[in-house]
Amino acid sequence: MTGQSLVKVQHNMSVAQVQHGSTQYLTFMLGAEMFAIGILHIKEIIEYGALTAVPMMPGFVRGVINLRGAVVPVIDLSSRFGGPASEITRRSCIVIIELQGAAGETRVLGAIVDMVSAVLEIDSGNIEPAPSFGTRVRNDFIAGMAKVNGRFVILLDVEQVLSLHEMAALASAQEAAAGAALTAA
């Protein structure tokens, strides 16, 4: 196993929380910006460990890890958003995210974040739509913006950010470009 499990996330929202329109989010930092993912998508948080690189993948796919016998691809969210690759520090960790596929299958992916902050409960009334400009993240990646303790938190649409179709298309385009470069040489 590449990293020790730091947190096992418990999914036990009460009926009262759902009825009042609040949702729990895991907040984390990428550079100076705070982001959040709905807690129901979070499986666990592990220490950053050695990754095995996979050739011909887009730059934001840093590699794969062995998580209790399962091969889990690890995405560098900073790179995925068009920024530089994350600098790995002692606070860096991998958030293990579980998504449901179209055919009902479960997909598990890891996301490198600079630092995990906290689990916050955010009332739906405090969530605004994504702005049309002003963020370094594509609009379709943003589920909304919330103001928490005087600070904006970007709520991510993990289905869009970690879309297998888009990542596969990017990998195919990179492979085609590499093939064209070899042919031209």
Rank of each mutant, 00 (worst) to 15 (best):
I45E: 00
I46P: 00
I46Q: 01
I46G: 00
E47V: 00
E47S: 03
Y48T: 11
Y48A: 14
Y48V: 09
Y48Q: 12
G49H: 01
G49W: 02
G49T: 02
G49Q: 07
G49K: 01
A50L: 09
A50C: 05
A50H: 13
A50V: 07
A50P: 03
L51F: 01
L51V: 15
L51I: 15
A53Q: 14
A53R: 05
A53P: 13
V54I: 15
V54T: 14
P55V: 03
P55H: 06
M56Y: 15
M56W: 13
M56V: 11
M57V: 09
M57I: 08
M57Q: 13
P58N: 11
P58M: 13
P58A: 14
P58V: 14
G59M: 05
G59D: 15
G59T: 08
F60Q: 08
F60P: 07
F60H: 15
V61A: 02
V61N: 04
R62L: 05
G63S: 09
G63V: 05
G63D: 07
V64R: 01
V64E: 08
V64M: 15
I65L: 06
I65D: 04
N66T: 12
R68F: 08
G69K: 02
G69H: 11
A70C: 12
A70F: 12
A70Q: 15
V71H: 03
V71C: 04
V72N: 01
P73W: 06
P73S: 12
P73I: 11
V74H: 01
V74K: 01
V74D: 05
V74W: 00
V74N: 08
I75V: 15
D76L: 05
D76N: 05
L77S: 09
L77D: 07
S78L: 03
S78A: 14
S78R: 06
S78K: 11
S79I: 06
S79P: 03
R80H: 10
G82E: 13
G82R: 06
G83H: 12
G83M: 14
G83N: 13
P84M: 10
P84E: 15
P84L: 10
P84W: 00
P84I: 07
A85Q: 06
S86C: 10
S86M: 06
S86I: 06
S86Y: 01
E87M: 04
E87G: 05
E87S: 14
E87Y: 04
I88Q: 02
I88D: 04
T89Q: 06
S92G: 07
C93R: 02
C93Y: 03
C93L: 04
